[in-house]
Design a binder for these strands. Structure first.
Length: 220
DNA sequence: GCCCAGGTGGGTA
DNA sequence: TACCCACATGGG
């Protein structure tokens, strides 16, 4: 796992996901908006929210769901995501006085359980929030992670989210900055492989990555 | 015109 | 538990 990280970093360089100039709340909003959506679309939705001064817990909590949906339209699934954003701020105000610092000061395991209980927050979004917004060390798993590492025969094909996460966290030092880069680098590799096989692939990205075979070894 | 994107929740068997 | 499906826009 360490070896793969070194090679990925050498190959792709630092990815600068969620730069520290973004506030924690913006990161959370982005994590929800990016579900099954490309980042360029999320940026448009975020720009709309910023322009409307809605990128604070208070403002978002007070905004009408319908208005939110209109503003975040470019990110797709906008009605659903507006509902999810409202669900998060409702949770934040009901349990933590609307303060992220109050939410984040909890133990990592408790924090994760609380996030998972919020409507619209699944394991990947919860872990992204913990790693990128709360800056606590947790490994974020996504579809690329499982496919790529299954192909490298480091995990089983049918491995679950939690199993994958456990495996990585067992073998790697718990460093927030490193987990941050690692996840971003895996996504960079996944995209890179997709691009290379684009012209001939019917079932992207599954087949593409299944086809990467020996090339993957040389890339990573 | 088709496929996918930094997923999640709900329904059915 | 294991699959399906809806959500929905914009870029390649």
């Amino acid at each position: 796992m360490n070896e793969v990280y070194s090679r990925l970093f050498t190959r792709f360089g630092p990815q600068h996901w969620w730069p520290q100039t973004d506030g924690a709340f913006e990161i959370i909003v982005g994590a929800i908006l990016t579900q099954n959506t490309s980042w360029t679309n999320v940026e448009k939705a975020m720009a709309n929210l910023r322009h409307a001064d809605l990128l604070t817990p208070d403002a978002l909590n007070g905004a009408m769901e319908k208005r939110l949906a209109t503003l975040i339209r470019p990110s797709g699934c906008f009605n659903l995501k507006a509902k999810k954003l409202k669900a998060f701020t409702r949770f934040l105000f009901e349990k933590h006085h609307g303060k992220l610092a109050h939410l984040f000061k909890q133990d990592l395991a408790i924090l994760r359980d609380e996030l998972l209980a919020v409507y619209g927050i699944g394991p990947e979004t919860a872990d992204s929030i913990i790693l990128y917004a709360a800056e606590k060390p947790i490994f974020v798993v996504d579809a690329y992670t499982r496919r790529i590492f299954a192909r490298l025969e480091l995990v089983r094909e049918d491995v679950t989210y939690d199993e994958t996460q456990h495996l990585f966290m067992e073998k790697l030092p718990h460093h927030t900055a490193m987990f941050n880069e690692y996840h971003a680098l895996v996504v960079a590799l996944g995209k890179d492989i997709c691009k290379k096989n684009k012209p001939r692939c019917d079932v992207c990205p599954l087949i593409k990555i299944c086809h990467m075979g020996n090339n993957a070894e040389s890339v990573t």
